[in-house]
């Protein structure tokens, strides 16, 4: 098992009240598996991703990554885990003032020594820049390599974020609705690119998708999240109407919007 979640819960302290973003999530994910994640906004998808990539710790239950309990990892163990997990964020999270090529190179930071990092700021190693160029070519951004990230369009930024993950070459790719800001055609291309890449190199892929048809066409397993819990976890062939109707039914009780969850974490540090 690459991931093993045992009744994982996560709440956020929002002023005086606790907001339960996830509760009782139990999931097993095998290496090389491709999982689509469905759910309304506010269902806890982003929180789940931040738990899976080692940014957040669960407030309940346990999360094992490749046999290691993430809570008991030391600093370098945690970095080693994070190196093996690549994330494509909903808001891309690129460094705005760096060029596309430099942003792609960031993917290799986990492998670089401090000296290599310093050198990379002036003149990156030849092997690294070739890899980065190749990654940019794969997502169709090779001609934009010298453009600053904040000069790119939303769709281009999304593909640049994918290039960064390709550069990182992780064992697990987490993609948090990477197609949300793309037009339907590009969304399809992006999904097939990631799915094909994961299949060919036997990487684990977990992707939140906002369109059911994308989920059923490209992914063998579909997990539905609702109000912070797992609503269903079925093979693609069993995804049917009433499962989905239940998943997307509006009951007006969603545990806080994502941006709210995020902003309170911005600068809180372990003093």
């Amino acid at each position: 098992m690459i991931y093993s979640l045992q009744s994982v819960g996560r709440f956020f302290q929002q002023r005086r009240e606790q907001v339960q973003a996830l509760k009782g999530v139990t999931l097993q994910i095998r290496p090389g598996e491709q999982v689509a994640l469905l759910g309304q906004s506010g269902a806890g998808k982003t929180t789940l991703f931040r738990l899976l990539n080692g940014t957040l710790r669960p407030t309940a239950g346990s999360l094992f990554f490749d046999g290691h309990d993430t809570v008991s990892l030391n600093g370098s163990g945690l970095r080693a885990m994070r190196r093996r997990v690549g994330t494509i964020y909903q808001q891309h999270n690129l460094v705005p003032s760096l060029t596309a090529l430099e942003n792609t190179l960031c993917g290799a930071l986990g492998r670089m020594s401090l000296l290599g990092t310093l050198r990379g700021m002036l003149q990156p190693a030849k092997a690294d820049s070739e890899l980065a160029l190749h990654a940019l070519e794969l997502v169709g951004l090779a001609d934009k390599r010298t453009a600053r990230a904040d000069e790119l369009s939303g769709g281009q930024q999304q593909r640049l974020a994918a290039a960064r993950v390709l550069m990182q070459s992780p064992d697990v790719i987490l993609a948090d609705e990477p197609t949300a800001s793309l037009d339907p055609e590009l969304a399809e291309t992006m999904t097939s690119l990631l799915a094909g890449l994961a299949r060919d190199s036997r990487k684990t892929l977990i992707m939140a998708v906002h369109k059911v048809d994308l989920a059923t066409r490209y992914f063998a397993r579909v997990v539905g999240l609702r109000a912070g819990g797992v609503a269903f976890d079925v093979p693609q062939s069993e995804v049917q109407g009433d499962l989905l109707n239940n998943l997307y039914a509006r009951d007006g009780k969603s545990p806080g919007d994502r941006d709210g969850d995020y902003s309170q974490y911005k600068f809180r540090c372990a003093r």
């Binding site: 080692g54 940014t55 885990m81 994070r82 190196r83 994330t87 960031c106 930071l109 986990g110």
Partner: peptide, 8 residues
């Protein structure tokens, strides 16, 4: 983002 991909 950089922290989550293993940067020191």
């Amino acid at each position: 983002a950089l922290r989550s991909l293993g940067a020191s």
